[in-house]
Nucleic acid binder design. Structure first.
Lengths: 195, 195
DNA sequence: ATCTATATGTCAGCTATATTGACATATTTC
DNA sequence: GAAATATGTCAATATAGCTGACATATAGAT
């Protein structure tokens, strides 16, 4: 999984110097000293998050180039590999892009035989997506590259901080999304119901 | 700071089913049981990182829309705000984009009076970038939005995990980049030289 | 003083990835 | 049979990146 980040289209018209200021609750730091320091700490995290993600996605980019694929292909391949039998609608929901955007990329993956689609057994309107053998291989290679970075990080970190990484990332997810995400994770401490 | 993530252009030609397989050291899990479980854990982190980042950048997108700016503007504005007097070359180095790409976005920020450029005092070839008053206001508003997420997360996390978040993100950064990043952080436990 | 290197700007064309809107088809459900 | 659903497709557009070529101003070196 690489960039996995979609573009949000901006409005056409750059707003001149008269743009409406933003509501009070969005305003920057103006409180007392302690709040300011908290803000400085959180600000550093914002920036660290950017750099960490930038380097993280860089790993996969180099491998993807060999196949002529981009980050969009990576995203699709990753989730199809992780959730074999995924219907189109579920994929759209995960990626939060339009079906038109997905279709171009998905068609390339289907044509190049990295992903295949079978009609759903229960609902034949659905096209369930599966990785092909070589699709699965590439997905694994990409995932191995990226999880190598995490493994290195976990080693660098003091033992008591290791579990915290997953908890931290999980807490960063929108609250109303967490259940769905948790359901997809493979038996980890966050996966919970490990029957 | 929002997406802050650049696109890596893919090669033109989608590779057919005959693509060269990737070298052995990139291969997926094939080792013994323990290694597999480590992999599963790291795989979950890969996915969590995606979802966390996806939601994280979503916060700023909504605000940026009001101004007709996109993520590229956010990145520029953020770093200009964070490092006032930043020369063009330094900005290019942080963002890792070409000057042509930067210029389109930067020009819009200059025209809309969110950023201003002054000739360098020591080297007059340089254009040093500063936020204007309204540029600084927007940058603060955006940063406040995003650091609010971090503050919420830090509250949700058990106290002993709080410091771990910054350490984790920092460890995720390429080793040869860390010094430079550290130099920019504002007096935090990672900032080190707090003279 | 001139030559060269550096910092930056700009033009032109291309690519990847997203968007919206409209419409088509197959299948399921009521 | 009608309506709703899952998906595909065509067309136009926007954002944000890229390469390559060339222009200008300033700095530094000989």
């Amino acid at each position: 999984m690489s960039e996995l980040l979609q573009r949000k289209t901006a409005l056409r018209t750059p707003v001149p110097a008269t743009a409406t200021p933003c509501p009070r609750e969005f305003r920057g730091p103006a409180g007392p000293r302690a709040a300011r320091e908290e803000d400085a700490e959180a600000l550093n995290l914002v920036e660290l998050f950017f750099f960490a993600y930038r380097d993280f996605v860089g790993d996969a980019d180099r491998l993807l180039e060999n196949y002529g694929f981009g980050r969009a292909h990576h995203r699709v391949l990753h989730f199809v590999h992780r959730r074999p039998g995924l219907p189109i609608a579920a994929l759209l929901d995960i990626l939060r892009i339009t079906k038109q955007s997905l279709n171009r990329v998905l068609k390339q993956l289907l044509d190049a035989d990295f992903v295949e689609a079978r009609a759903g057994a229960v609902d034949r309107r659905q096209r369930l997506l599966y990785p092909t053998a070589q699709g699965a291989r590439l997905a694994r290679d990409l995932a191995a590259l990226q999880s190598a970075r995490f493994r290195r990080v976990l080693e660098e970190l003091p033992p008591e901080a290791r579990g915290a990484a997953a908890a931290f990332l999980f807490a960063m997810i929108d609250a109303d999304e967490r259940d769905r995400v948790r359901g997809h994770l493979q038996r980890s401490e966050l996966g919970a119901e490990r029957r």
